[in-house]
């Protein structure tokens, strides 16, 4: 590949100086497209693989359509009495519910930290920073023990509560509030006789909205992709999200068949909604919030 590449570009360099401007994007475009290929291959593979029967999965070319798509879908949606729909639903409950909760909590806390002075603020900020740095995953086991004692395991709350406060979310809301809500607005509100709560609801929140959408989306995807927390918290498979369900589908022990064809179709079905969601909402992201280039 490299050899032919050199041969085809060399003459250009020598002969076509004036075309340089239009050609300037060629090498970068090729590099970019190579990267694109790398990122897309597994996704394209899963699309083709989902159409195959177990046999075809192992003895037909990767990028050839199979004949098993319909059967795989039927098998997937009838597996364990149609549990797959339930698992997808659970993922949505966790992702939407958890992201919503954490966005509301973050908005309130970030707003307070950015715009008010109060005793203990420094301690909260330090605690927050510590929370951002802490590997939350190491907390999962004690969380499980405590939640079990409190009777929260095997309820949706077992997953929703731990994800509903993310130090990172509060931090982002804080950064965004500091940059986008001027303190003068609060003063103006006070002069007008508006209560703090009303100022927050009527002026603060609308200004925060773009930042909140971003926090919601980051949280949504984070929770949707989460595996360990629900895996440990929920022993009732009716409450499992799709990531845990996929893992259980593929780890059924040596005495059970491993249903790759069905699992791969499940993988495709499981990633489609999130991909669609991300693509659709991409334009609403304020990722400069994360990149810290917010002015």
């Amino acid at each position: 590949m490299t050899a032919t590449g050199i041969r085809s570009t060399r003459p250009d360099i020598a002969s076509a100086r004036p075309r340089r401007r239009t050609r300037g994007g060629f090498v970068p475009t090729v590099v970019l497209l190579a990267a694109v290929a790398y990122f897309l291959v597994p996704v394209v593979w899963v699309v083709f693989a989902a159409t195959k029967t177990t046999g075809e999965l192992f003895n037909t070319p990767s990028f050839a359509m199979g004949t098993g798509f319909g059967d795989n879908l039927v098998q997937l949606f009838t597996y364990q009495g149609g549990a797959f729909v339930q698992w997808m639903g659970n993922s949505f409950v966790y992702a939407i519910g958890g992201a919503l909760l954490s966005t509301i909590v973050s908005a309130a806390a970030g707003y307070a930290l950015a715009l008010y002075d109060f005793p203990g603020k420094k301690a909260v900020m330090i605690g927050l920073l510590g929370g951002v740095l802490l590997p939350t995953i190491t907390l999962t086991i004690p969380q499980y023990m405590l939640f079990a004692e409190w009777g929260l395991t095997n309820t949706y709350w077992a997953v929703l509560l731990p994800v509903s406060v993310t130090p990172f979310g509060v931090y982002l809301a804080f950064v965004y509030a500091r940059a986008s809500v001027p303190r003068e607005l609060l003063e103006a509100g006070r002069v007008d006789g508006s209560s703090e709560g009303r100022t927050f609801g009527a002026i603060g929140l609308p200004l925060l909205l773009p930042g909140l959408v971003t926090i919601f989306l980051l949280q949504f995807i984070g929770i949707w992709n989460n595996f360990l927390l629900p895996y440990i918290m929920q022993s009732d498979s009716d409450l499992a999200p799709v990531t845990v369900a996929m893992y259980l589908m593929l780890n059924r022990g040596g005495s059970e068949p491993i249903l790759y064809a069905m699992a791969i179709t499940g993988a495709l079905v499981a990633i489609l909604p999130v991909i669609a969601f991300v693509l659709f909402l991409q334009r609403f992201w304020r990722l400069d919030l994360v990149s810290g280039s917010l002015k």
């Binding site: 004692e149 395991t153 095997n154 022993s235 259980l248 780890n251 059924r252």
Partner: peptide
């Protein structure tokens, strides 16, 4: 009937749930 885990992972799940009274 439900299958919270399978085979080798089962004791973990049963033991922790039973200890938690769950």
């Amino acid at each position: 009937i439900s299958a919270p885990a399978s085979g080798a992972d089962m004791p973990t799940v049963v033991l922790s749930a039973a200890r938690a009274g769950d």
